[in-house]
Amino acid sequence: MYAFLARWADRLINLSAVIGSAGLIFEVAVILVDVTGRLFNTPLYGAQDLSEMTMSIVVFGGMAMADKLRAHVAVDIFEEQFPAWLNRSSDVFSALAGAAIFAGIAWTVYQSSQISLMLNLATNVIGLPKAWFQWALCAFSVITSFAMLLRAFEMLARKREQHA
């Protein structure tokens, strides 16, 4: 069961990062086309709408991968001085806290997307619905939260094995 979940989590993490990376390249292309077009008085219509909204995908697409690679910055100054149990507990706590934070982000941004639908919110120039990008952000956050939760369980399980 755990192996099955872990395999799926890995696939989803990679897929998120792939989507985020594609978004980043798209972002560069949009701005380049806009800047070049503006030189000839034909800027890309809605370029700012596109680059702002795409950014939500770039930022959250890499979130799960960042956790997998343990890229989130922590203050490691006292790591050596702390006893092993404290370091281990703090790792588990951090993973659980992260899972809760991303679950919270997913939940509240989803709520907020319902408001976006109610208020008919969309970008100013080409009318991209805000809710689409909020949903994307939710999906990435759910994946991140899920991956962190799995990691917390894995650490707890490993600890029990060591004790056994």
Binding site: S112, L119, N120, N124
Partner: peptide
Amino acid sequence: QYVRALQGVADITWGLEGYTSSQ
């Protein structure tokens, strides 16, 4: 800004309609 008033982060907010013109 509008959403902040709607959700009660603040009781009263000021904003420009043009920032969310679709609404």
